[in-house]
Design a protein around this nucleic acid. Sequence first.
DNA 1: AAAATCGTTGTAATCGATTTCAGTCCAGTG
DNA 2: CACTGGACTGAAATCGATTACAACGATTTT
Lengths: 346, 346
Amino acid sequence: MNKRMATPGRAKISDVAKLAGVSPATVSRVLSRPGLVAEATRLAVMNAVSATGYRMNHAARNLRKQRTGSVVALVPNLGNPFFAKILEGMGRELARGGYDLLVADTLEGEGRHRTLERFLDPSRADGIILLDGLVPHADLDQRDDLPPIVTACEWIEGASLPRVMLDNREGGRLAVAHLRELGHGRIGIIGGPSQNVLHQARLAGAEAAAEGAQLVSFPGDFTLASGQAAADLWTAMPDATRPSAVFAFSDEMACAFMARLHQRGISVPRDVSVIGFDDIELASHLTPALTTIRQPKRDLGRAAAGIIIDRIAGREIAEVTLLVPRLMLRDSTAAPAGPAGGTDRA
Amino acid sequence: MNKRMATPGRAKISDVAKLAGVSPATVSRVLSRPGLVAEATRLAVMNAVSATGYRMNHAARNLRKQRTGSVVALVPNLGNPFFAKILEGMGRELARGGYDLLVADTLEGEGRHRTLERFLDPSRADGIILLDGLVPHADLDQRDDLPPIVTACEWIEGASLPRVMLDNREGGRLAVAHLRELGHGRIGIIGGPSQNVLHQARLAGAEAAAEGAQLVSFPGDFTLASGQAAADLWTAMPDATRPSAVFAFSDEMACAFMARLHQRGISVPRDVSVIGFDDIELASHLTPALTTIRQPKRDLGRAAAGIIIDRIAGREIAEVTLLVPRLMLRDSTAAPAGPAGGTDRA
DNA sequence: AAAATCGTTGTAATCGATTTCAGTCCAGTG
DNA sequence: CACTGGACTGAAATCGATTACAACGATTTT
């Protein structure tokens, strides 16, 4: 029953103004700073607004105010469940700050560079949260024609952009220290691409904690497929060199690794211990429940959001924000079966 | 070494025009319809463009052209890995059509209604793909001030909006038919919220295929937690009424169900068969590999994208697009252990 | 030789909201 | 009574790109 503009388009601010018998300026004021307007006028305008079903035109407002009211998060791959909770935390925090969160996929490889260029634009977003470390170094930190940027989770080596991330090194250290404590002396690592910053940091931590233990590398790229492949490699190794425990740099790889081993009749953790990284929601619902290094994902998202908000507002911010990882002890790790009658030695 | 606007802002079209010695109109033409401009002029303009580092202002363009060049997908929960592949297919198809895909989370519950209202706006998106069925019926299909909308996966009962979705009824039928064929006579159903459209359709299919078999309902809401809870209920049932097979309406519930049973020493599929729904990427990497009903997720995304593109272009479109489900036979289902010495009866 | 046409370019209006600046009106003050 | 100041409102400029329209020279047509 509303008396809306039956016309093709929608009511604009001047229509509302006309109906209320005031100027467009006044309508604008009622909508953005009601305090400036006399009570009676305000009511008249409000009535006109609802009578016309008026809704602001974003393009016009953005053009005039030179801001968009939204922050864009660029992720390398929406398919990765790992990002889900991060984005959730981010969205909530941004909402509190009055921003909308929009997520775009950089579609790894292919159009990556192009997608990035398209969104790195102050006329599209007030700020950018970059969760993809594989962007061409570019001079992202020097160009003056970009909106504020913060990198989260991954980061870009060499660029001086603010970063929010897990202490990945410490995470790697925790995992290997745990396996060492259980008594494992030969530890497999299913890592990421070798130039990946997360890979490097976690590996550094792992090496630091290895001490006497030997680390054996399996190729990986964080995907299920590579976890499965690692399982085949592991199975094919001679007993002498085969690690008694494996540290996968993502829960997905750990999951696929375990599943493949199970298919081949190998039992986790009896025959081999497995520890993952991330603590995705599913990790505790796997068989066996996966021991892993937890990233506080919601906090990470929240932190990144907080920082981008501050940067947009021109406030000073921390260059690096490190969150602390935590070992989630579950059922996929155990002491190694003695190499030849092990347990009695204890 | 680029000679960029050193000034606070960026070069605008008039700066480029000045440098190239032409009018802004010509620059605009070079950028959008180069064919209209003489070769020499075109080159001069291109040079000026790269010399100034000019980049178009989206807000201005959107305002003038009355379009945004992007499509917004509204999902109820970014955390659900199920959406990942759908969004991926969607993004690619939209890119081919010249649109950007932006994803926003409706943040189930809380701000849902508000988020929706914010994005349902032609000045924000040229089209909306709604993956959340729980929006207030609203008169979404009748209002003339909204951009084109298509619902995908879920849909809104009663509204006459175009829909793209799996044939959920058929999916339910396939699952139960499979279990029947294996010889299960009492089948548990871990469903969704009872008013959920997916739940209803799948249940209808399940019932249609049940024939003599008895269906036993467990409460569920598609989450891991509810799958786990169902496992506890199942375990607590007396042998006489306990189903020998369970059909979960999501892979996540199936996964949590299996993991919990495993913890309690119950073996799948020996003691109970489990079938899921969705075929998320992880499904084949679970232990045991999960038998499930596959949704062609990428196709679904692609189809939804295609339809919104057509709607935006004003072309006629199909009101309902049904994709066909497929049974993915893996290791979590098997014939029931004979109620009392079963197998010999065959 | 005049007229019509084509290719190319510039002028200026336009999209819709915000905001500066300059009033107008009225109450309070000296 | 003239003046200051405050509360409120409107006129008009502005954000930056697009595009309808007009204009111009050069060529082709009649």
